[in-house]
């Protein structure tokens, strides 16, 4: 018997204000996979991620995440085990929260309100900050970080959850090469060591970790292409996919 996938969408439709963001998407992702989600602006990539963690509700179809359907208390249960790094995170420069307090938010979600973070949890968060080269900024107000540092802080918060699956919405967009390398290295490590499932939205064909073995291209709210390839060999597939996509866009 085939084990239940970590994520399954069947004929998923999302429509709001007369616009169809997802127009019947079916996708199955097994635990431990690393899947790249590519496509032009408005293709439905971000909507798909927000359906998975319950921020967007389906108009029709089925979504199953970790054996649960988002809705009610299951939404909270899913979010505790599925880390989400949003595309943009605007932070007020005067906000009374430091980087480490923000990253600890991931631990609080996982522990629930009854349990307090242990010494091990604090040590874990410090090691995450260290690996993302953020430890020296730990006590700095979150709103005083640069764009790249804020993006890494959001990834650190996500890792602090110890998630089974991570939804990454263009985590390396508009970052310098050094920041991209740091993020890709740590994602590669997380995927190898903890077998964390990664669903990675990107426009940048070079900004994907080598562990990525599957490329899903979306166009106009549907999956236009779903390709599996050897680890680190996705670049050619994606380049071809991007070429096809520009062909679709032009006629």
């Amino acid at each position: 018997m085939t084990p239940e996938p970590i994520l399954e969408l069947r004929d998923a439709v999302v429509a709001y204000n007369g616009t169809t963001a997802l127009a019947g998407v079916s996708l199955r992702v097994d635990a431990g996979a690393c899947v790249a989600l590519i496509g032009s602006n408005g293709a439905g990539k971000t909507t798909l991620l927000t359906v998975v963690n319950g921020f967007t509700r389906l108009s029709a179809g089925v979504v199953r995440v970790l054996g649960m359907t988002p809705g009610g208390m299951d939404t909270t249960r899913i979010r505790r085990r599925v880390g989400y790094v949003a595309q943009t995170q605007a932070v007020d420069a005067r906000m009374p929260i430091t980087l480490i307090e923000s990253v600890m938010t991931g631990v609080y979600g996982r522990l629930g309100w009854r349990r307090k973070p242990s010494q091990h949890d604090h040590a874990h968060v410090h090691s995450i900050l260290d690996s993302l080269r953020l430890l020296h900024l730990a006590e700095r107000p979150l709103g005083h970080l640069s764009g790249g540092e804020t993006r890494r802080a959001m990834i650190a918060r996500c890792l602090a959850q110890k998630p089974d699956m991570m939804l990454l919405d263009e985590p390396t967009a508009s970052l310098d090469d050094a920041s991209c390398d740091i993020i890709m290295d740590i994602m590669e490590q997380v995927h190898q060591k903890a077998q964390t499932t990664l669903l990675w939205v990107t426009h940048d064909l070079d900004a994907l970790p080598p562990c990525c073995t599957r490329t899903v291209r979306m166009h106009n709210g549907v999956i236009a292409q779903d390709t599996s390839h050897a680890p680190g060999a996705g670049h050619g597939e994606m380049a071809a996919a991007k070429h096809n996509e520009s062909g679709i866009a032009h006629g």
């Binding site: 909270t76 979600g109 309100w113 979150l142």
Partner: peptide, 23 residues
């Protein structure tokens, strides 16, 4: 006092707190 950590997370960045599994 009981919910200080969760209250701070929600007050400062509600969407992030929600994404982390805090109700």
């Amino acid at each position: 006092l009981l919910f200080f950590r969760q209250v701070q997370a929600v007050v400062c960045h509600r969407a992030v707190a929600a994404a982390a599994g805090i109700p």
